[in-house]
Write a protein that binds this DNA or RNA. Sequence first.
DNA 1: AGATTGAATGGTTTGTTGATTATTTAGAAA
DNA 2: TTTCTAAATAATCAACAAACCATTCAATCT
Lengths: 214, 214
Amino acid sequence: MTKDCPRDRIVEAAKCRFSHFGYGKTTMAEVASDCEMSPGNLYRFFPGKLDIAEAIARTDYEHHLAHLRKLALAPGKDARERLRDLLFEVLRRTYHKLEKDPRALEMAQVISRERPQFANWMLANERKIIVELMEEAERRGEPMPPLDKEESAEMIQAATMKFRYPQLWSKLTLPKLERELDGVLKLLIQGLCPLNYAETRERELARQSAAAAA
Amino acid sequence: MTKDCPRDRIVEAAKCRFSHFGYGKTTMAEVASDCEMSPGNLYRFFPGKLDIAEAIARTDYEHHLAHLRKLALAPGKDARERLRDLLFEVLRRTYHKLEKDPRALEMAQVISRERPQFANWMLANERKIIVELMEEAERRGEPMPPLDKEESAEMIQAATMKFRYPQLWSKLTLPKLERELDGVLKLLIQGLCPLNYAETRERELARQSAAAAA
DNA sequence: AGATTGAATGGTTTGTTGATTATTTAGAAA
DNA sequence: TTTCTAAATAATCAACAAACCATTCAATCT
């Protein structure tokens, strides 16, 4: 099923080497010989070594994105749950990738140092999915706050930035991180404004007395 | 007014050198000769070079903390405004310090690499101030959400983490950062829950018709 | 005694040299 | 012509020595 064009063979060989020995310890000559070609020939398919790494990261990330999109549009869940699933998935993916393969960190660091655009592109993609999530909610007739969706998505991302950067995790375990993300999301959904709670409580009471009357 | 004890002279000399030439390019011998003492004698007052840097950072940070506490308890402003002032001040201080003196970044990085506890201590201090802010609001009779204050403070910090770490700012200007922090705060206060807006709108309408009737 | 020095120590940084390796390119093979 | 190779180039890395510097401590001063 997988295309057998030279480009794909290169990506495969490089992926194998990178995850085995690391980006830095893999030479173009090794990748080329795995593909039974000369080192120079690699450059007919990629501008440079870093672009191979980027291609690997890009396809991997695109699978992730597809998964996120599924979560964002999942039926039978309201917008709040879908947003929660989405952001939890982002956190878990980063955490597990790092745990399973510390070499992934090297590649991530190299790419985001040398290709800052790439990180921006990823953020923009996820922002787009959050917007789609909200549009879908509206389409389904879920009640939505009267806010600009683009801007809200940007703010949601800013507020959950901590859960994207392992450098900020300082030894926190996944459960602790999840508890924190959960708390942040609660705050983002419900807000700190006391009015929100007052009204919610009134509604609760009203619902309870309605139930008692019936 | 400033005590003239050797310890303070050392701190002064080191502060001057560090901000002029950087932490790495300053030698203990230089600091000692600025204080007209031998290098060895520095160790009667500090366990090591890093501790001098930490002492400098600590006093500077304590001024900042005092300022934050003033903002947190400022009269004539409600809790929302005080929280806003507090978080904006944290952002602005970091931004301006960095802009004015790029060597401050080196020191901050060295300290938080070698003394991770220090960063935690700073965060804990600010969390305490946020709790105090909320307690003060309660004392003043401002309506408050029925939430655990410690936990809320933790979540507020997590959600505004991005504005504490220049590495996450990727070339954003201060106005852009401020606009983003503003957006995040709006979301934290008001929440994304559509109910909040529905109720708020109802209140608005009620207030308007009351005004019209009068 | 306690305070201070400055030479001795050992760990780290710096600078240099010789590989190693990414990238280019002239030209061979198809 | 298009696809590829392999030698040439240039950039980066690794290893080793020299210099430097944080820290210690035996000796000196007060």
